[in-house]
Write a protein that binds this DNA or RNA. Sequence first.
DNA 1: GAGCGGATGAGACAACCGTCACATCGTGCG
DNA 2: CGCACGATGTGACGGTTGTCTCATCCGCTC
Lengths: 236, 236
Amino acid sequence: MGEVQQVLSGVPLFAALDEEALGRLAARSVARDYGTGHLLFAAGDDCRGVYVVVSGRVRVFRTSPDGREQVLHTEGPGDAVAELPLFDGGQYPASAITEVESRLVFVPRAEFEALYRDSPDVAQAVIRELGRRLRHLVQVTETLAFRDVAARLAMYLAQWAEQRGTATAGGVELTLDRTREEMSLELGTARESVSRAFKQLAGNGLIVRLSRTRIRIPSVERLRTLARPGERPRYS
Amino acid sequence: MGEVQQVLSGVPLFAALDEEALGRLAARSVARDYGTGHLLFAAGDDCRGVYVVVSGRVRVFRTSPDGREQVLHTEGPGDAVAELPLFDGGQYPASAITEVESRLVFVPRAEFEALYRDSPDVAQAVIRELGRRLRHLVQVTETLAFRDVAARLAMYLAQWAEQRGTATAGGVELTLDRTREEMSLELGTARESVSRAFKQLAGNGLIVRLSRTRIRIPSVERLRTLARPGERPRYS
DNA sequence: GAGCGGATGAGACAACCGTCACATCGTGCG
DNA sequence: CGCACGATGTGACGGTTGTCTCATCCGCTC
């Protein structure tokens, strides 16, 4: 089994495919390495196919006319990027760029289309995937609409702690592999505001800064509480 | 053909069904009238089925802890509401309420599931529908993240003018069947801010207020321009 | 046509945040 | 070790917006 096929077999979207279909798909797909900051496609481009992340990380975002950026989601190993336009024949609604050095497999459009047209299981997987996206976007929307930056950051850290945090005696410890700048793009705010929000959370004892890139969260529970209090947020 | 079947046959989601399948579906679905402001379901509820709008309008939204609301989308006649949780077995990500007196058909979950499992065409339609939602949410997200209220309103009115506006000598005329309050919920802002934005647009000659509920847009083109200028918005 | 109530407009005020400017920190390199 | 550069923290400032309050306006009913 070639490397490409190996990778594709681990992608939820293609989980339902049998050996043969997978092999055929792999044969027509291409793996390639990209450096940091490579633009895979821009919002408005016509869709040529779907990318699957082998390693690294891809950021999907919208750009405002005056250059600001709002990250819609980031995808890591095993995730697919840009399935959406394949179905309605439309254009990419957002742009995508590699955040770090990444290896991606590109599946041409025609190939992918034939696939889910024939296989109900794949269609099912696609629906599930779109559903996941939709749920996530609802989350993003809510975040932008409601909370102030500190609450958004609290939410963000709490969610992150549950994924990659490691439990210790003093609470969950967490390494942040992103710069404040990158976080600011996801939170829909400015770099400086993220810094200030960190200070605020630290001041309230909700987080402890162990180093620049590492924090401890004494209680994820309490952190979440700040993100959704019954009342509007008010800090000392 | 019963009333319910008549309605269902016009819904894009069920367009691919043959007479028989449609009849079976209709037989197990229920039509019902709701008054204004009836809560169909709340975010976090378990999903019991899908609603199809026969007449009226349904608002889908998220509520913040302190009571603010962000409208995600509104659906009118022929549209389906709440398909999402049917696929991943999750809960409703948002709440839904009738904005006006409405007639809705309720399709039970089990019925709907059997349907798209058997029919690839229906699955296809479902995917398309989810895609539409996704695109719309990207739009909403961008709007919230980037533009100020006046720009958001401009965008909103422009889009609306193209749908229901009527061309006249002086430009496109448009009747707004929503209160400022309802608009504010869609635009993610406050009622007063919408008023201010209207004033601003009128001051710049981008819109002309004919009456409280009716406006004329001399140039939809120019209105859109304000919504996406190369530079950040600046008004006199 | 008088009265009522919801919708709208308008002013004042403070909070929050984006931006600019600059200090500081850390890391890698020469 | 010193330098350089990028990332980060901090302070100041102004603009936009949410909220509160009140004045108007409009449609409706009696």
